[in-house]
Amino acid sequence: MTKFLAVTLFILSITAFSQNRIKILDAESQKPISYAKLTFKDKHYYKNTEENGEITLEKSEEIFEIQSFGYEDFKVQQNQPTYLLQPKFTNIDEVRIPKPKFSKTFTIGKVSKENSFYGVHNTIWMVAKELRNDISEAPLFIESIKFYSRLFSKKSATIKINIYYNENGIPGDLYKSVIVTCVKKQKITEFIFPKPFTLPKEGIIVGFEWILNQENSYQKMMMINGEKKETIGHDPMIGSLTENPKNIILGNLSQEGWIFVNGSNNSSQITKNLGIELKLTN
C-alpha cells in the first residue's frame, strides 16, 4: 500500500510539474473571462479557457496572444499565473439608428435534420457561410439564429458564433460574437439575441468557431491511414444540408489572425452546405 501510494504521488508530481494552470480576468471587474482564446508560439492550434476563465497548459506551450470579443488583444511578453484583459471601448460618432417595428417577420437560410455534420478537422477551426439580404431595401433586424447540432459525447457543449461584415463574400470586421450552448436532447438549437441588431444591406458572414477546451473535448478511436488511433474531438457538431455547397468559407488560424478562403469549390473538403436560418424583423 505504501509503495502504491508513493508511485501515485510520484506520477502526480510529474504531471503537475509538466503543466501550468493560469486564469484570465477582466482588468476592471476582476471577473473571469470565459472561453478566451489563447494562441501559442510555434504551434498550429489554439485553446480556450473554461467557463471559470482558467486553463491548464502543457510546459511546452508558450502563449503568444490572448483574445476575447470585447477586449483588447493581449500579446504575452512573460509567463504569469494571471492575465488581465482590458475592455475595448469604441468611440462611435452620433448617428440615428432606426428601431425595429416588429410588424413583419422574415427568414433567411434553411435548417433541416440530416446526417451530415461539420466538426473540428485538421487545421479547420471555423466554418462559415455568406447570408445575403435579398428580401427588402428597408432596414431589417436580426432577432435569432437557428442551426442543427449534434453532440457525440457531452450532454451540453458551447460553440462561438461570429458574425462578420460581408466584404465580397469573405469575412470583414467582426460585427457580433456570442457563445451558444447546444444540448444533446435538443437537435435544433436556436439563439435569441438579447437585442435585435441591423442586418447590413450587403448581408453578413456567419461563422462557427469551435471552443477547444476540456469542457467540450472527448476521446475516440478513429481509422487514420489504415491504423486505429485515439484522437481528441470537440463537441458540438454543426449540421449541413444535402445540397451543393454555396457561399461556404473556411477559417484557419495563424499568429497573424484568421485566414479565410472560399471553400465552395473545394470538393476535397466540402461536400455539404451549411444549415443556418436567421429570423428577421422590420
Rank of each mutant, 00 (worst) to 15 (best):
K104Y: 01
E137R: 01
F74N: 04
I66F: 06
I145Y: 10
Q78Y: 03
K129S: 11
S112E: 08
N79P: 05
K104E: 00
I108V: 06
R150S: 12
T107R: 07
Y83Q: 04
F117Y: 07
I108H: 02
N133M: 13
E137V: 04
L140E: 03
L151C: 13
K146Y: 12
K155G: 08
W125K: 15
S136A: 09
Y83W: 01
F74C: 04
S144E: 05
S112W: 10
L140G: 03
V111E: 00
I97S: 04
P139T: 05
F89Q: 13
T107V: 01
S112V: 13
F69V: 11
A128C: 13
E143I: 14
Y71E: 13
F69W: 10
K113H: 00
P81I: 05
K154H: 08
E72A: 15
L131Q: 07
P81E: 15
E137K: 00
V120A: 06
D134S: 13
T158S: 14
I142R: 10
K113S: 06
K99M: 02
F152W: 04
I142G: 12
A138N: 12
F141R: 08
V127N: 12
G119W: 06
Y118T: 09
Y83M: 02
A138G: 05
K104A: 03
D93F: 01
Y148M: 12
S116C: 11
P139Q: 03
S149Q: 09
Y71V: 07
F106A: 06
V111Y: 00
A157T: 08
S103C: 12
N79I: 06
V120L: 15
W125Y: 13
E130T: 15
S112Y: 15
S136Y: 06
F147T: 00
